[in-house]
């Protein structure tokens, strides 16, 4: 039997961070089923570490770090299995279709098209470059937060950010998305 008090404490600690964690899962995984799996696995792991979690000053940052590490571990396992991500695993604009329901006829469709192109451009970046640009420029994480989450030095993050933006500018300039 689960102790109801334990469940209550756990929920109080993690629920305020759900939206942020779900967004992070989406940015890391790139598709809904995988984002949901990542989110779910994080909660299972975090509940198992409740004794540690209650003493952590910033549970939100801690949870982000654990989720990131889970994601990286999953990818390492994948590499060991000699399997690889394939075209059909993530299609450009896949997640955006969920947002297309209530759009105004012209303006929002144009915006959606821009996001689709951005999404396709992001898929052309390396994993490291895509992740850093999404965490910093889209999700608003500070450089030191990304350093703490990923264990990558700030200097390297800055360099990746610079290169990622330059490549995105180039791709989006060529296809006329930005001018």
């Amino acid at each position: 039997m689960t102790d109801p008090h334990q469940t209550e404490v756990f929920e109080r600690l993690v629920r305020p961070h759900f939206d942020r964690l779900y967004r992070l899962a989406w940015r890391l995984a790139g598709s809904k089923p995988e984002a949901e799996d990542l989110f779910q696995e994080l909660l299972i792991k975090a509940f198992g570490m409740l004794d540690e979690l209650v003493h952590i000053e910033e549970p939100g940052s801690w949870l982000c770090r654990v989720m990131y590490n889970q994601f990286v571990d999953q990818h390492r396992r994948l590499a060991r299995q000699r399997m690889h991500l394939v075209d059909e695993g993530h299609l450009p604009g896949q997640g955006l279709a969920d947002l297309a329901g209530d759009l105004d006829p012209v303006d929002d469709r144009e915006r959606l098209e821009k996001f689709r192109r951005l999404d396709a451009a992001l898929q052309q970046l390396s994993d490291e470059h895509r992740l850093v640009v999404l965490l910093h420029d889209t999700e608003g994480y500070k450089l030191d937060e990304i350093e703490s989450m990923t264990g990558t030095p700030v200097g390297t993050i800055k360099s990746r950010l610079h290169r990622a933006r330059a490549r995105l500018r180039q791709i989006l300039d060529e296809d006329g998305t930005i001018s």
Partner: peptide, 29 residues
């Protein structure tokens, strides 16, 4: 580019997903 990235959306979680995830986490954890 920065404006586009800043607005780049993520779909919200389905209604009830967080609650279901919490229940599973407690059971499986």
């Amino acid at each position: 580019l920065l404006d586009l990235l800043k607005d780049y959306p993520v779909p919200e979680a389905e209604a009830g997903f967080y609650d279901r995830a919490l229940v599973r986490a407690v059971h499986k954890g």
